[in-house]
Nucleic acid binder design. Sequence first.
DNA 1: CGCGGGTTTGATGATGCTCAAGCCCGGTGG
DNA 2: CCACCGGGCTTGAGCATCATCAAACCCGCG
Lengths: 197, 197
Amino acid sequence: MTELLFEKIKEYVRVEDGDIVLLNAYFKFEKVKKGAFLNRDGEVAQYATFVQKGLFRTFIIDERGTEHILQFSMAGWWTGDLASFISRKPSRFYVEALKDSEILIISKESWDSLMEEAPFYLDYHRKLLERSLIATQDRLLESYSVDAMKKYLKLLKTLPDILQQVPQYMIASYLGMSRETLSRIRRQLAKENKGQY
Amino acid sequence: MTELLFEKIKEYVRVEDGDIVLLNAYFKFEKVKKGAFLNRDGEVAQYATFVQKGLFRTFIIDERGTEHILQFSMAGWWTGDLASFISRKPSRFYVEALKDSEILIISKESWDSLMEEAPFYLDYHRKLLERSLIATQDRLLESYSVDAMKKYLKLLKTLPDILQQVPQYMIASYLGMSRETLSRIRRQLAKENKGQY
DNA sequence: CGCGGGTTTGATGATGCTCAAGCCCGGTGG
DNA sequence: CCACCGGGCTTGAGCATCATCAAACCCGCG
């Protein structure tokens, strides 16, 4: 059941093959339908969520009612509001399934037990945190110093798979630009590349 | 020597009074002059750095040669590129003292030992990571959805002390706007508040 | 006094947003 | 089978915000 998670953990820390038993004991498998919400603004995130299959988005809605997507979470990644889950404080985010999906969930109590029982998991978690921090810093720097076109080009390199899977207006929201702007950028790129086929 | 750090740790995790001995053993005290760099783009961060006294900035220089400030670090906070320090990968940041300052530093080897010897420290570190992540997420969201004026007003609330201590053009850089824009915003605010004294 | 770093001010222009309309295409019901 | 609907994408026009460039200004200091 938890093979994918186990594989991922192996990428970060050293583990014994037997350790997978622990994961199986602590995590719970669930299916969620496209459109379902794992979390809403103001709620405390009840579970940490590992994506086995499918796709999620994490977003906020600002005072003007506009959505801003912080993150897409694909298979093999985590989703949800980690900060809320750990601190038990209300989340500021919505988390929504963009496809029928399969997830592993774990409650805070189980999480704490697992941390005590399995040092490797604690270590893994710390490294995940570090990685999230770096990724978020990168996005922040990008938002500072890079124009719309370059942001899109960078996304093409770093997350090409996403483009096939979500509507364009969500890409625009993720990149922090209007749907119209993204549309125009794509037109321009298409024009430049004409004749290359 | 490490009283301030110890105080800070107490805010996050439970510790024994005797634990301060450990900190004294592991951390090294240093003074740095205004203008000194703790770290430069491309270097691996050799130390984790706790600020006892003074002020630091963390920034990058983009392809066009423009500086972008990610963070100011005051007394009681950490500075430097944590990600680089932990992962041993080259940093992307510059870290510069904005005043004559006093710091506590610890090497990676000592850091690892301390983590093993002092579980409370490990826990403290994890919570710091979480906090940094939240703070960075906040800044990212802000860069998305908030105009220049509101960013400044928010800074006035969250970090009023900073304003007294650093030149305005650094504030502008931190907020992701030009110095001229910040200047105009301040003029406007001054105008609106006339007569309130 | 003059220098230099920092700030202010004005003029101009680029970038990307908003609003509004039209288009494309797959799905549905008559 | 086709008309129509609706969601998403595109296109254009006008506009707001903010960056850039250039000049002046302010003020502490040698």
